[in-house]
Design a protein around this nucleic acid. Structure first.
Lengths: 147, 147
DNA sequence: CACATATGTAACTTCAGACATTACATATGA
DNA sequence: TCATATGTAATGTCTGAAGTTACATATGTG
């Protein structure tokens, strides 16, 4: 399986939307993310459902950010795109008859749940505003190298 | 993507091998894990390479455990099966030109790396012997319910 | 030695899910 | 009216674990 990039993509796009003046069309967003306009609309649907963005059809339409980046955490975006499965490894059989396998599952599940809880906590601690600030630092640094 | 069950499967099998008297054939192991003998041989190859098990061809052949369960941690098995990819989510582009995306990647990577470090630590803290002990508790408990 | 029994491995097929693409319906402003 | 957007269904593409088939090779036993 290839990686699920929806969380990463949508964070990227939301920050660009915050920096834009007017609405951004699916086509423009697709160019930014090097993907397809339909993929943008499909994935952004989740963000619209929770009220982070609005979409307008027709002339001068497109996507607009409705909330400040300060109010959106990485976890909020993760939930909005449908809480994709986190792990690529897991149990061979989640409900086995074999008692040995049940014991194995208990240990595996315990380890995975702790790691998942930490990841969720990490995602909840960072807002898109902080990532935008990090971008500003990177931008200034890149300008410093120019003549 | 479907889940990668190699770690879970091999832990399960190693504990069964510890409880067996003689060698276990790939066919017998495949029945235990509800899978195919070739899958067993393919996955066990990694465990043989690090010396956890030995394989013998021909009559009365099969797989034998070479080390005590006390000396094998979940992490050891994880490494022996080839350190499969842990996460199903990740970066859309690991080396983007866009500075916004670079900032997004930095935050995502930081969160994922912390979660991965915790998972690895958890896997390293539990030996197969402890899982076998947990099995014994479960077995006793299940017998207590019989007449 | 001949043969049944194992493993070792290559060469497929299958399957799931994100992503890509095509096609077309629908809404909207000029 | 028409160009420009989104909304969504339908279909194709790609990747890697798992499953399967086939056959070479090794090894006890009669």
């Amino acid at each position: 399986m290839q990686l699920d990039g929806r969380l990463s993509r949508m964070m990227h796009l939301l920050i660009h939307m915050d920096r834009a003046n007017g609405p951004i069309t699916s086509g423009a967003a697709a160019e930014m993310l090097h993907t397809n306009p339909v993929v943008i609309r499909r994935t952004m649907a989740g963000l619209r459902d929770v009220g982070f963005v609005r979409s307008i059809k027709g002339h001068a339409g497109g996507w607009t950010l409705l909330k400040p980046l300060e109010s959106i955490s990485m976890l909020d975006v993760y939930k909005a795109v449908g809480q994709p499965r986190i792990f690529a490894i897991g149990l061979a059989d989640p409900a086995p008859d074999c008692l040995v396998e049940q014991a194995v599952n208990a240990s595996m599940t315990s380890a995975l749940e702790k790691a998942e809880a930490l990841l969720i906590a990490q995602l909840g601690e960072v807002t898109l505003a902080e990532i935008a600030k990090d971008f500003n630092r990177r931008f200034s640094a890149s300008c410093a190298n120019l003549p």
